[in-house]
Computed example of a mutant assay.
Amino acid sequence: MRSALVIGSGLIGTSIALALSGRGVRVHLDDDDADRRRTAAALGAGTETPPDGPVDLAVIAVPPARIAAALAAAQHRGAARGYVDVGSVKGGPRRELAALGGDLTWYLGSHPMAGRERSGPLAATADLFEGRPWVLTPTAETDTEVLNLALELVALCRAVPVVMDADAHDRAVALVSHAPQLLSSLLAARLERADEAAVRLCGQGIRDVTRLAASDPGMWIDILSANPGPVADVLAEVATDLERTVHALRSLESADEAKRETGTAGVETVLRRGNAGRDRVPGKHGTAPARYETIAVFVSDRPGELARIFADAGRAGVNIEDVRMEHATGQQAGLVQLMVEPAATAVLTAALRERGWSLRSP
């Protein structure tokens, strides 16, 4: 691939353009919003100058509701040899393109499974997709040349290609991406009018669960409007579980011992189902989830402290598999939770204590 046209200069489009430009592809930027286009160009994502003729690949990086129209327009003017979109919904745009008379032979739907809570070109990074799954949804109609161009795009962005059926993809992302966004927002909404005393008690748990609630509502309205049925199906199942859990919790308030036992069993069931589901989430590098031990270290909020603790772990010959941070309320300090292989726990614990670190129960 020597040339590409990226239509849409938001987070995903600009990140793709940055990755391609950084690997020697001449990238042309196209966006109805001139400010976003200029910003992306200023970041080094490509040129605002239109291409002289057809490019190798056109990447459509606009909201799902606009994908089909943007694809049809690009095909009508012969913008490229092949066309891919990178929207988060796949079945609908393909059907809409067919209804508009678009050529499905030279089009392939795709979805890089990466993003950030922030949107727009200023949030873009060239390494956004590194090591992340990138779904490709070819059909029997898809020309081999377009599939090869799409695979080259994924490789240049250093992502991992995953081939799926378009509608199966939409059901999958409803479960693992779209419904979690709404559930995070619903829980965070409980904090809007909560007492200040309650809000001051917020810890890492509520921060983890509500992280997605910081996302741009406008972007998510576009996404959810393009995949409402599968998302509603997931939420309907969650609503059924919620109703049962509420009933179980009410039973725990009863003076009747039998009802309390029933309530306990109901709550335990949902917690154990959660354990089982969480155990299926892939671990590092997409492998089976690993069981790590956690070492919690009290760290002051000073420059260089994190670098020092990682260096001390390295000197002890221990690899940090994962890390989390929990900031202390009202203090310039917090806990750094280091996840390590169980066999390395004793070694790292002794090494950190020897170097003066204060360890806490995680």
Results as ranks from 00 to 15, higher is better:
Ile7Met: 10
Gly8Lys: 02
Ser9Phe: 05
Gly10Asn: 04
Leu11Trp: 01
Ile12Ala: 01
Ile12Pro: 00
Ile12Cys: 02
Ser21Met: 04
Arg26Cys: 14
His28Trp: 05
Asp33Asn: 15
Asp33Gln: 08
Arg36Gly: 00
Arg36Leu: 01
Arg38Asp: 14
Ala40Tyr: 01
Leu43Gln: 08
Gly46Gln: 06
Asp56Trp: 09
Leu57Glu: 06
Ile60Phe: 03
Ala65Thr: 12
Ala65Arg: 13
Ala68Asp: 07
Leu71Trp: 07
Arg81Cys: 11
Arg81Ala: 15
Arg81Trp: 12
Val84Asp: 01
Val86Tyr: 00
Ser88Cys: 03
Arg95Leu: 13
Leu108Pro: 03
Gly109Ile: 03
Pro112Asn: 09
Met113Asn: 05
Ala114Glu: 02
Ser119Tyr: 03
Leu122Lys: 12
Phe129Gly: 02
Trp134Gly: 02
Trp134Leu: 09
Leu136Gly: 03
Pro138Met: 06
Asn148Cys: 11
Leu149Tyr: 09
Leu156Glu: 07
Leu156Ala: 12
Ala159Val: 11
Val160Ser: 10
Pro161Phe: 02
Pro161Cys: 04
Ala166Thr: 10
Arg171Lys: 07
Val173Met: 00
Ala174Tyr: 00
Val176Lys: 00
Gln181Val: 03
Leu182Thr: 04
Ser185Gln: 14
Leu187Thr: 13
Arg193Gly: 10
Ala194Thr: 13
Glu196Phe: 03
Ala198Lys: 08
Met219Asp: 02
Trp220Asn: 01
Leu224Thr: 04
Pro228Gln: 05
Pro228Lys: 08
Pro230Asn: 05
Val231Gln: 00
Ala232Lys: 07
Ala232Tyr: 03
Ala232Gln: 09
Asp233Cys: 04
Leu235Thr: 05
Val238Pro: 00
Thr240Ser: 13
Ser251Thr: 14
Leu252Asp: 08
Glu253Ser: 14
Glu253Cys: 11
Ala255Pro: 09
Arg260Gln: 13
Glu261Asp: 14
Ala265Gly: 08
Val267Gln: 04
Glu268Trp: 10
Leu271Val: 13
Arg273Ala: 13
Arg273Ile: 04
Gly274Tyr: 09
Gly277Leu: 06
Val281Cys: 02
Thr287Val: 11
Val297Thr: 05
Val299His: 01
Gly304Thr: 05
Leu306Asn: 05
Arg308Val: 03
Ile309Asn: 05
Arg315Met: 10
Arg315Gln: 15
Asn319Arg: 14
Asp322Pro: 04
Arg324Trp: 12
Arg324Tyr: 10
His327Lys: 14
His327Glu: 08
Ala328Leu: 13
Thr329Met: 09
Gln331Thr: 12
Gln337Asp: 11
Leu338Val: 13
Val340Gln: 00
Glu341Lys: 14
Ala343Glu: 15
Val347Met: 10
Val347Arg: 15
Thr349Trp: 00
Thr349Asp: 10
Ala350Gln: 14
Leu352Ile: 09
Trp357Arg: 09
Trp357Gly: 07
Leu359Trp: 00
Pro362Ala: 07
